[in-house]
Computed example of a mutant assay.
Amino acid sequence: MKRSGILHGRLSQIIAELGHGELIAVADCGLPIPPGIELVDLAIKPGMPSFLDVCDTILTELVVEDFIVANELAIRGSGVVDHLRERAGVLGKFIPHSDFKQTLRNVRSVVRTGEWTPYANVIFVAGVAFS
């Protein structure tokens, strides 16, 4: 049994296997997942687990080079983008929500949360722990 970190076996494995530049998304309950993309569904009820709780937990183990969010999250997200910037240590990129959904076709997997807030989605770009 793991003592700490991500206890969800498959999610822990996905993060361990990510290579430099590969993508992993964290999503709210409503984000459509493209066919063929692996879904790690953590949602158990509205709001649980929250988007930020899942992001914070992933960021304890994942080296992040960048992140991508929809413009709409920056407009309506009330501090979410600032929180992601602080935790990930990068500024992030902003694209229209329609483009965000297209970018999902390139992710390794999507982690669905119980988040009940529109546009609470992020794509993390894996970095490397060495320079």
Rank of each mutant, 00 (worst) to 15 (best):
I75L: 07
M1R: 14
I15L: 14
G21S: 10
R10Y: 13
V63M: 05
P46F: 08
S98P: 07
R85D: 02
A70F: 10
C55P: 08
Q13C: 11
L23R: 12
D41N: 15
R105G: 11
R3P: 01
A88C: 04
I33E: 11
E72F: 04
F51Y: 14
H83Y: 01
D28L: 00
C29K: 07
S98C: 10
M1H: 12
A126E: 06
P46C: 05
V40L: 11
G127M: 03
P34R: 05
T117Y: 10
E86Q: 08
I33S: 07
F130I: 15
V64D: 09
R108G: 02
E38Y: 05
R3K: 10
G47R: 00
S98R: 13
N121A: 09
H8V: 11
R112V: 02
L18W: 03
E72S: 03
V122P: 09
G9W: 08
A70S: 14
E65D: 11
A70T: 07
S78P: 00
Q102H: 05
E65Q: 10
K2V: 15
R76A: 09
G79V: 04
R105W: 10
L42H: 00
L42M: 12
R87Q: 06
R10H: 11
I37S: 07
N121R: 00
F124P: 11
D41F: 11
S12F: 04
I44F: 12
T103I: 09
I68V: 12
L31K: 09
L62G: 07
S131T: 13
H83K: 04
V122W: 05
E22R: 03
I58T: 15
S4Q: 14
P49M: 01
K93N: 10
V90R: 15
T113F: 05
L11R: 10
